[in-house]
Design a protein around this nucleic acid. Structure first.
Length: 432
RNA sequence: GGAGAGGUGGCCGAGCGGCUGAAGGCGGCGGUUUGCUAAACCGUUAUACGAGUAACAUCGUAUCGAGGGUUCGAAUCCCUCCCUCUCCGCCA
C-alpha cells in the first residue's frame, strides 16, 4: 500500500510513477478529495467530543454528582446527536480511501525501464549458451512419461487438469532439488521455516495477495475456524506476514527466511497456456526466499537475492538469463523485479524460473512491519523482498530437458547427486 | 469436542464506574556521584490520528485482546467473538 502522506505531499510524483505502469491517475484527485473531507470531519467530530468530555468531567468533579448529571444531561444529549451527525460519513470516507489506495501499485524504482510488456524487459546478464544438441531435444513431459516418472493421466483422474504425479526416480529427483535448494539457502544464511500452508484473510491481505492474484486463490471452508482460510499461493505470504504488526530491533535486520512449501494457484487467467508438462500447475513445490531489511540497503539486497537464485542454476549447470522487468511488466507489490529465465531445450525458449522483487515499504505498510534503529527511536517501516530459490517443478523440467540423453535417459547434474543418491535415470526408469 | 482459568504499556504486575494513559517493579534513556565497571540517587520513558509550527512546542481525539451494549461517564458492568493456559476426550 502506498503512503497516503506521500500522495498528499507529492501527488505529481505518484501520478508520474503510476502512468509509467500504463495506468490512469484519476484516483489521485479522488483520494485527495476524500482525504480532505475525512480530515475536516475528524476535526469537527473531535471538537464536539472535547466539549462533551468537558461536561462529563464537570460532573465527575461536582460535589453532588446526581444533581450535576441531571442538569447537564440535556446539553450532553444534544452534543451526542451532533457528534453522531457530524461523524456519520467518516467510515465511508475511510473505506473509500482505503479501497482506492489498495488498488494503487507500488512506486517503481528509477532503474526500471519504460515499456508496457515483456518486449521492453532488459537483459541484465546471461549464463551459459543454449546448448547445441546432436539430436532433437524432447519436451520434459515426453521424457518423463517415457521414463515412467511422471503420470499426468492418473493425476487428472484424481484431481483434474494441471495436477501431476511424480513417481519413483521422478519423486526422488524432485525431493533432491528441494533438499539442494534448502541446503544452499542455509549456507547463504537464510533461516529455514516450516510455515502454515493455510492462512487467514488478514494475512493474505497484508502481503497484497488478494489484489495481486485477484480471485485466483483457493479457499477452504475452515468450519470451526469461523472464517475461510486460504491456501498459500507462495511461501512469501506466511514468511513475510510472520512479523505482521511487529516492531523489530534494527540490529536484527536483515532477517532472511527460506521455506519449501506447496503453492496453490487457480491460474484462472492462463487458460490454454502451458497446458502440458510441469510449467503451470495448480499445485507445485517451491523454495521461497524472503528478506526483511533496512530501507537504505534493500536494492543492494535485491542483487544478493537474485544472485542467490541464479547461483543454484550455476551449480546445476543450467543456462539462464536475468531480465530486469519493465514498468508495465513489474508486479503490483514490487518497485523493481528481476526475472530469472532458464533455458528449456525442448521448448526452444527461455522460461521464467524465478522472480525476485524488492517490495520496498509497500507490503510493510499493509502488514505494519516496522523497526527501530535504536531503542527510543521512531519506528520506521522495513523493506521486504522475495524471490524463488527455486521452484521444484520448473527446475525439474529444466534438468530433464537440458540433461536428456539421446537414448531417453537423463543425467543427474553433479551438484544434485549427493541429494538424489543416484547419477542418472536410465531409459527403463531405473537409477544408476 | 467437554470443563475451568485468563488476556492491562518493552516485560512483570496493580487497578472502588469519574481525580487512571493507567500505581508499583524490572528494563531502556538522560543526569549526579565515582580511577574504570558496578552500586546508589534524581529525572525521564506508549502508539495512532487530527489541529498547529519553518521545525520544535503545544492542544484535541482514540486506544487496557477485538467488536457491540448499558451509563452523563467504562480498563472496571453486560453480550458476542478471537486468542492463551490447565484438565479430560480424540488424533498424526
Amino acid at each position: 500500500m502506498l503512503n497516503l502522506e506521500l500522495l498528499r505531499r507529492e501527488p505529481d510524483h505518484v501520478r508520474v510513477a503510476t502512468r509509467r505502469r500504463g495506468l490512469g491517475t484519476e484516483f489521485v484527485d479522488r483520494i485527495l478529495a476524500l482525504d480532505q473531507e475525512r480530515r475536516a470531519t475528524i476535526t469537527a467530530v473531535e471538537a464536539l467530543k472535547a466539549e462533551k468530555n468537558g461536561l462529563t468531567a464537570e460532573i465527575g468533579r461536582a460535589a453532588d454528582k446526581k444533581a450535576a448529571a441531571a442538569e447537564l444531561r440535556p446539553r450532553i444529549a444534544a452534543l451526542d446527536a451532533r457528534i453522531a451527525e457530524a461523524g456519520e460519513h467518516l467510515p465511508t470516507f475511510e473505506q473509500r480511501i482505503d479501497a482506492e489506495l489498495a488498488d494503487v501499485p507500488n512506486l517503481l524504482d528509477g532503474s526500471v525501464p519504460d515499456g508496457s510488456d515483456e518486449h521492453a524487459n532488459r537483459l541484465v546478464r546471461a549464463s551459459g549458451d543454449p546448448p547445441r544438441s546432436t539430436f532433437a531435444p524432447k519436451p520434459h513431459w515426453e521424457i518423463a512419461e517415457r521414463l515412467g516418472i511422471l503420470d499426468v493421466e492418473r493425476a487428472s483422474a484424481l484431481s483434474g487438469a494441471r495436477f501431476s504425479i511424480l513417481r519413483g526416480a521422478g519423486a526422488r529427483l524432485s525431493r533432491a532439488l528441494g533438499a539442494f535448494f534448502l541446503d544452499r539457502a542455509a549456507r547463504n544464511g537464510y533461516v529455514e521455516i516450516a510455515p502454515p500452508l493455510l492462512v487467514n484473510r488478514g494475512t493474505m491481505w497484508s502481503t497484497g495477495q488478494l489484489t495481486k492474484f485477484a480471485d485466483q486463490m483457493y479457499v477452504v471452508d475452515g468450519e470451526s475456524a469461523g472464517e475461510a482460510l486460504f491456501l498459500i499461493p507462495t511461501a512469501e505470504v506466511p514468511l513475510t506476514a510472520m512479523h505482521r504488526g511487529e516492531i523489530l530491533a534494527g540490529d536484527t535486520l536483515p532477517l532472511r527466511y527460506c521455506a519449501q512449501t506447496p503453492c496453490f494457484r487457480k491460474e484462472a487467467g492462463a487458460a490454454g497456456r502451458d497446458t502440458r508438462g510441469l510449467i503451470r500447475q495448480h499445485q507445485f513445490e517451491k523454495v521461497e526466499l524472503v528478506w526483511v531489511t533496512l530501507p537504505e540497503r534493500s536494492f543492494d539486497d535485491l542483487e544478493t537475492l537474485a544472485r542467490n537464485a541464479t547461483g543454484l542454476l550455476d551449480e546445476l549447470g543450467l543456462p539462464y538469463r536475468v531480465m530486469l522487468l519493465c514498468a508495465g511488466d513489474t508486479g503490483f507489490n514490487s518497485a523493481k523485479t528481476y526475472d530469472v529465465e532458464v533455458w528449456l531445450p525442448g521448448a526452444d525458449a527461455y522460461r521464467e524460473i524465478s522472480s525476485c522483487s524488492n517490495c520496498t515499504d509497500f507490503q510493510a505498510r499493509r502488514a505494519q512491519i516496522r523497526f527501530r534503529r535504536e531503542s527510543g527511536a521512531r519506528a520506521e517501516l522495513v523493506h521486504t523482498l522475495n524471490g524463488s530459490g527455486l521452484p521444484l517443478g520448473r527446475t525439474f523440467a529444466a534438468v530433464l530437458e537440458n540433461f536428456q540423453r539421446e537414448d531417453g535417459g537423463v543425467t543427474v547434474p553433479d551438484a544434485l547427486r549427493p541429494f538424489a543418491g543416484f547419477a542418472s535415470i536410465e531409459p527403463d526408469g531405473s537409477v544408476r
